[in-house]
Design a protein around this nucleic acid. Structure first.
Lengths: 203, 203
DNA sequence: GGTCCACTTGACTGTTCATTCAACTCGGCG
DNA sequence: CGCCGAGTTGAATGAACAGTCAAGTGGACC
């Protein structure tokens, strides 16, 4: 069940996931990845044509991990759909906290770092953001008439993503969780007002 | 009054501002800057000890330009403090639009790109974000009793920054303004509900 | 036991990077 | 006129970079 004996390609992707999250794509050298994965350059280039293909594999693994590695642990023991949204935000807060505000959302960092019109990479970045937004949107749908019916669920989910990414950006820059918390508190206030204005308002 | 005959250091900072905004700091080489500024490496290193000092000068110039270059044009003809907030967001939207969603907020991009604990740079990034937030906060203060008194103005201003930065991130990734617009629309809805709940509610 | 091939090894290549430096230009000043 | 030094020139430097490759290794299959 455990000790899956990871092969070289998996070790490389795993090491690259950590390094790209910590230092970004451009600032991570192939040599860095090889050192962290305890591999040789020939092995990397046997498994991946270029460094960019390592990034593609990393983004694919992030995408595959959204439900099992991100949402599932964040939502353990939380069934209320609105509370699930704030539980997910709390998970990012915890990540910031244990890394002293230096590690945030790797997808967001990479999305702002990668500038060239580089179709497979941008498509995977977009897919990751979309999956995140759709998970929030599903919570909003599950909240049903606890929210006013005229509210655009997709747009509200995109606002939640902005609160998370913008909060991470400010927290990292200020090396403080204060602005992250303030953004979440403002979002909480907004949700309170939405629920107060909804047809199905009960505790 | 015009044609200020920019000296070499100014040309270098100006070129670096454009390039750091377009391609980021790490992906912009000193040679790129020299080419764009039509200067030689010796001139750059005569004016700046290292490439990072060019970044510091760029961030300082961004900071100095917030009021005259960003807020003043965005707020021309807009006096209502709440509308000024949305006018500022509209200005970023316009910037995204004319660059086909590729150019966003250079401060936000740099804030997520720079990872090392590099005090002068991070201090200037934080100062830039702070100045932006304080400008929004001043609008919220000016709105007076059109907002509920219990609302945390600073926290709400940080939410506005998150909406902008998160919207830019999503717009760049999707190469579409839709998610930016949706985030702003959700914020607009929130402001509508806040103003409806405020003591001094009038058109 | 032989053949095959997926995978590994690590030295190597050519390029690009930030940075250096000796030599130069030229306006100002005594 | 002669000299000074702020500013400029661009070739040179060595480190770091992504990517290549000839030579291996070892398990699987006949």
């Amino acid at each position: 069940m455990s000790a899956p004996i990871p092969n070289t390609a998996d070790r490389i992707v795993f090491a690259a996931m950590e390094l790209f999250g910590e230092k970004g794509y451009g600032s991570t050298s192939v040599a860095d990845i090889l050192r962290a994965a305890d591999a040789n350059s020939g092995s990397l280039y046997h498994a991946f044509p270029t460094k960019q293909d390592v990034l593609v594999a990393v983004l694919q693994r992030y995408f595959d991990g959204i439900a099992p590695m991100l949402l599932a642990p964040a939502w353990e023991g939380v069934t209320d759909p609105v509370e699930r949204i704030f539980a997910l935000l709390a998970r990012y807060r915890g990540l910031l906290e244990i890394t002293d505000c230096s590690y945030g959302c790797p997808i967001g960092s990479l999305a702002l770092e990668i500038h060239e019109p580089d179709p497979p990479v941008r498509a995977l970045l977009a897919a990751n953001l979309d999956a995140w937004v759709m998970a929030i949107e599903a919570c909003l749908d599950a909240a049903g008439d606890r929210l006013p019916p005229e509210i655009d669920r997709r747009g509200l989910a995109q606002l939640v993503l902005s609160v998370m990414e913008g909060g991470v950006m400010q927290a990292r820059t200020h090396r403080s969780l204060d602005s992250f918390d303030a953004g979440v508190a403002a979002l909480r206030d907004y949700f309170g007002r939405l629920q107060a204005a909804a047809p199905g308002k009960n505790p």
